[in-house]
Nucleic acid binder design. Structure first.
Lengths: 159, 159
DNA sequence: TCGATTATGTTGACACATAAACAATCTATG
DNA sequence: CATAGATTGTTTATGTGTCAACATAATCGA
């Protein structure tokens, strides 16, 4: 008895801190966009669509935003109700919509972007672009590893 | 006309990447805990309570987890229904509960922890403890800055 | 061309999160 | 002591997210 079960490894605290920081960042962005009654996802949709004059299908949006199709339905519903977006029919495909920015949506995005850029500069404060990129790269690697590990647990009955 | 409005600063991409990584990490932890039908928040509750033989009030939980009181109600409801937790009355305070782990909750946590520790080691892979701590520190600083900036926007009508 | 498969969007059931409003209770100050 | 204010937990409304099931429509292979 009393083998070294459950002993936290050296990276245990770092992982807890990482997840806490990730959550704090996400929450911070939520509060930031609250001024304009937008969620981070809604901002991302505006940001994606502004470069697409022909719009995107909801399925494309769900892939870009890494979220389920069914969630896009509700997001687009609410943003369409606020007249930030509109659904147009897709020529040659009677299933899909083209979701495009309205003039009102474009105006809102242009109102937000300067604040967003300024916030981005402040967030990184004294950190150099090189360092920022390095942290981003590390985080990106970490995210991919996490995704792999997480997936592995759900595939224990593989062939 | 044509001043440098809306020009993305050098940190713009890094910020987008940072938020994307944060989201990916959070999503990864969600999928990881899914094996045990737990959400990350539920795991955090188990993890908090295991060190508190006398339990915690729901208000204390909400402060530790940085979430709204009303959310704790539902989380504790669901976990109590699964008999992972129990609400006991607080002597001397008829408003509050003491939320404590059941034996079943303790067993579940002990089942998860080894996997969690192993995942933590894998996530950080070749990264040294020193580097991990440095990244954690940087992220912590970034989170705090984000929180400040986010808050500032909601207080424009201050005295 | 027919039939199976795949793709798209919606719905319903559920979980998780916030905020506001409420009742019950505790606490501190006059 | 009395009462005004703070704290605790719940409820309701709303938004965000998942998943499974569904109807419709497109596509591809035999």
């Amino acid at each position: 008895m009393s083998v070294n079960w459950n002993l936290p490894g050296p990276h245990y605290q770092a992982t807890l801190g990482l997840l806490r920081a990730a959550e704090a960042l996400w929450e911070g962005s939520r509060v930031f966009f609250d001024r304009w009654k937008l969620s981070p996802s809604q901002f991302n949709i505006l940001n994606l669509l502004v470069g697409e004059p022909n719009g995107m299908s909801q399925a494309e949006l769900s892939r870009q935003l890494i979220m389920h199709r069914s969630n896009v339905t509700g997001l687009v519903d609410r943003m369409e109700k606020r007249k930030l977006l509109q659904r147009k029919e897709t020529p040659g495909d009677r299933r899909a919509y083209r979701v495009t920015l309205t003039e009102r949506g474009r105006r809102l995005l242009n109102e937000i972007l300067p604040h967003y850029h300024q916030a981005a500069e402040e967030i990184w404060g004294g950190i150099s672009v090189g360092q920022a990129n390095q942290i981003e790269a590390t985080l990106d690697k970490l995210s991919k590893t996490v995704a792999q590990i997480a997936q592995r647990g759900t595939q224990e009955d593989m062939i």
